[in-house]
């Protein structure tokens, strides 16, 4: 009887232990299964998928999480590249800088920093860093120089020497670059002072000078008619009406001078806008002649 009871007691203890063991194993496994999607490895592969899908913001979040547990140059580079592509240039530059020393991607990171500054349109710092040894790289010096030359098309600094600028580009693109260079150097603009003076001499002439032919002729007719009405009224002793039309004529004359100067400014703004657009489209089409890195798209 006692033996039977002891056996039963042992069996109960055994079952209790087994039960605890199985529950522990199953819980750990279940937790592991749930964690699988968020493990560093999964985050990295999901981040890469998002990067290829051009969902750079979400990709950057996955890379950031991955880098909390693992240090990987390629991932940090892709994180920087993600920031660059979504326009967070300062974060991109800082992350590229963190890859400058003792990594396999030091040269690519330096080019990345210059790309960040270029797309941020921070050309002053771009040119400043280009002269500092800490930031330059032998491997991509030609690409950085070319990017520097391109930057002159986007700011108001005087253009560098033409022969050096042209030589930075391949023969295939040199004709386009030359065209843009001369368009930038000698833009087809109209002088607002000239336009105003022309309109002061002959009403409407300033507008015709800026290409507004219809407006110019209308101004000439309107001012001429008002002057005629004024003179005619004075001649017939209608002094009040004479002064009234003289006032209108003066307003039309003055307005026409001001309008001609404004028209020249509008014309110049249009020329600049079209030039900027054309240049931007051209360089965008050629990806700013920057090298592509295969490891980024893997």
């Amino acid at each position: 009887m006692i033996i039977k009871r002891t056996k039963s007691h042992i069996a109960e203890i055994f079952c209790n232990v087994l039960c605890v063991f199985v529950i522990t194993v199953v819980s750990v496994n279940a937790q592991k299964l749930n964690d699988d999607f968020f493990s560093p490895k999964s985050r990295l592969s999901f981040g890469n998928y998002l990067f290829l899908e051009k969902d750079y913001l979400r990709a950057s979040n996955e890379y950031k999480e991955f880098l909390k547990t693992d240090n990987n140059d390629t991932v940090r580079f892709k994180l920087s590249e993600s920031f660059l592509r979504i326009g967070r240039y300062e974060e991109a530059a800082n992350n590229f800088k963190s890859l400058f020393f003792s990594t396999s991607l030091t040269d690519e990171a330096r080019l990345g920093l210059f790309k960040s500054l270029f797309f941020e349109k921070n050309f002053v710092r771009f040119r400043q860093y280009r002269l500092e040894e800490n930031y330059t790289t032998e491997k991509f010096s030609h690409d950085i120089d070319r990017l520097n030359y391109i930057s002159y098309f986007f700011d108001s600094e005087p253009l560098p020497d033409s022969s050096r600028l042209f030589s930075a580009f391949a023969d295939l693109n040199r004709a386009d670059i030359k065209k843009f260079y001369y368009m930038k150097k000698n833009p087809d603009t109209k002088n607002p002072v000239t336009a105003a003076l022309l309109s002061a001499a002959i009403p409407g002439l300033g507008k015709i000078y800026t290409g507004e032919i219809g407006d110019g002729i209308t101004s000439l007719i309107t001012t001429g008619l008002l002057v005629f009405l004024s003179a005619n009224n004075f001649r017939h002793d209608h002094n009040f009406r004479g002064w009234l039309f003289a006032g209108f004529a003066a307003l039309a004359y003055g307005g026409n001078i001001y309008g001609s100067a404004a028209s020249a400014q509008i014309y110049n703004a249009g020329v600049k806008f079209n030039f900027d657009n054309e240049v931007k489209l051209f360089f965008e089409k050629h990806n700013y002649f920057l090298p592509e890195f295969d490891f980024v798209n893997r």
Binding site: S8, A11, E12, C15, N16, L18, C19, V22, I23, V26
Partner: peptide, 14 residues
């Protein structure tokens, strides 16, 4: 009876 009881418990959990 005891064995079946525990077996059932574990099975439900798993």
């Amino acid at each position: 009876k005891l064995f079946y009881k525990y077996f059932l418990l574990i099975e439900i959990f798993v």
